[in-house]
Design a protein around this nucleic acid. Structure first.
Lengths: 219, 219
DNA sequence: ACTTGCGGCAAGTAATCACTTGCATTAACA
DNA sequence: TGTTAATGCAAGTGATTACTTGCCGCAAGT
C-alpha cells in the first residue's frame, strides 16, 4: 500500500516533469496527477527536489534496450533490430530526455541521467564492433583508422538520438519513413567501418591474426 | 538610444533564457541582467511572453552557417569546413537550443525556432549533394538508393547536432577530439553516398547522362 | 481494546511571480 | 524655453510557489 502510493507519485512526477520541466512540475500538479493529497507528497519524499531527484534516477535505471548478440551472425539485421529498439526507447522518453538536457545547465544530475542510457548503449555497440572484427566481418588493413571506427559509433548513436529527439519537430529534415531511415543508417554505418554487405568469406581464426590488443576498444 | 535599450534587453533575455528556460527567465532576472528597470521591460515589450517570443524569433533569424560552394572542387575539405562551422554555430547556441526543444512541448513556436537553422542547413547540404552528383563526384548506378542518400544527409546532420548538444554532458560517448570526429563524420558520409576519397576521373558531361529529374532532390 | 502509522483535509506561512500605478528625472526637439 | 517621450523608483496588485501545522479518520497489529 505504501509503495503503491510512492510508485503512483513517482510515475505522476515523471509524467508532469516530461511535459512541464522542473520548474513547471509543481507539487500541486504532481499530487493532482497522482490523485493524492499534496501533503502526502512531502510526507513521503520530504521535498520536491528529493522527489524529482529520485524520479530521475529511477527513470535512468530502466534499460529496455535490446541486446546485441555476442556472436554476430547477420550484422545488418542484428544492428537494425538493435537500433530500432534503441530508437523506440529514446522516442518513448523523448519529452523527458529533452527536459533533462535543458535542466542539465542548472542541475548536472539531470544531465547524468539523460546521458546514462546513451552511454551504456554506446558501450554495447562498441563491444559489438569488436566482435564483428574478431569474427572477420570487418575488412582489416583498410584505410579506415581506429579513430574513424570510434567516430562511426558516435555517428550512428548521435544520428539515432537526433532522429528520436527531432523527428516530430523537424518535418523538413525527416521526410522519409522511420524504418527506411534506420535501415539506411545501419547500412551506411557498416560501410563506414569497412564491413561489406555480404558475409565475408569466413577466414579461419582471423582472431589470431588480429589480436584484440591492437584494437583500441577496451570496453 | 531606444533601440539600444531594446537590444540590450533582448540580449539579456537570450542569456537568461538559455540558462534558466522559459519559466526561469523571470522579468526581474532579465531586467537585472540588462541593467534596466523591470518596468522598462513591460513598457517596451508589453509582456514577458511578447519579449521572449520576439527574442526567440530574432535568434532563429541568425544564419551564420558557412556556405557550401555551388561548384564542388574538393568535397572532403569543403564539407569538413561547412560541418565545422555548423557544429560551432550549434555549439555556441547549445544551451538555448536545449531550452527551446524542451519548451517545444508547451510552446510549439519554440520548437519551430530550434528547427529553423537545422532545416535550412539540411537544405544546403542536400543541394550540395545534388551538385556533387551533377559534377560526377558520385559513383552512379551503385547499390545506393536515393532514399539512402537522403538518409545520409539526415544521418550527418543528426550526428553533428547530437555532437554539439551532448559532447559536454556525455564524455563516455565523445572521447575523441572534436576535429578528428568531424573529419571522420565527413569521410563516412562521403563513403555512404558513394563518393570516393580521390577525385573521380572527370567524365565529360555526366550531367547529360544523369538528368537531375531522376534525382529526388528538388531543393 | 488499544496503539501505531498513514493519509486526507483545511488553513496558513513567507517568498516569488507577472504586471500596474503614480511620480520624479532626464534628455531631445521645438 | 516649453513640450514630449522614455526611463527610474517605490509601492502594491492578486496569483502561485514550496512547505508546514494541526486535526481527524481508518485500517492493521498486538
Amino acid at each position: 500500500m505504501v509503495d503503491d502510493h510512492r510508485q503512483r507519485i513517482l510515475l505522476a512526477a515523471a509524467r508532469v516533469y516530461a511535459v512541464q520541466g522542473w520548474r513547471g512540475a509543481t507539487t500541486r500538479r504532481i499530487a493532482e496527477e497522482a490523485g493524492v493529497n499534496e501533503v502526502t507528497l512531502f510526507r513521503q519524499f520530504g521535498s520536491k527536489e528529493a522527489l524529482l531527484d529520485l524520479m530521475m534516477h529511477e527513470c535512468s535505471r530502466i534499460d529496455e534496450a535490446a541486446i546485441l548478440p555476442r556472436e554476430p551472425s547477420e550484422p545488418g539485421a542484428e544492428l537494425l533490430h538493435w537500433v530500432s529498439a534503441h530508437h523506440a526507447g529514446l522516442s518513448g522518453r523523448r519529452a523527458m530526455v529533452r527536459q533533462m538536457m535543458s535542466d542539465a545547465e542548472e542541475r548536472p544530475d539531470a544531465g547524468h541521467c539523460a546521458a546514462h542510457n546513451a552511454s551504456t548503449a554506446a558501450a554495447h555497440l562498441r563491444e559489438y564492433v569488436v566482435q564483428l572484427r574478431r569474427h572477420g566481418w570487418v575488412l582489416a588493413g583498410d584505410e579506415i583508422t581506429p579513430t574513424e571506427v570510434r567516430a562511426a559509433v558516435t555517428l550512428l548513436m548521435g544520428a539515432v538520438f537526433a532522429d528520436a529527439m527531432n523527428r516530430d519537430i523537424m518535418p523538413m529534415l525527416y521526410t522519409e519513413p522511420l524504418d527506411d531511415t534506420l535501415r539506411a543508417y545501419v547500412r551506411i554505418f557498416l560501410r563506414g567501418i569497412g564491413a561489406p554487405k555480404e558475409p565475408v568469406a569466413l577466414r579461419e581464426r582471423t582472431v589470431d591474426r588480429l589480436p584484440s590488443s591492437t584494437f583500441p576498444f577496451s570496453v
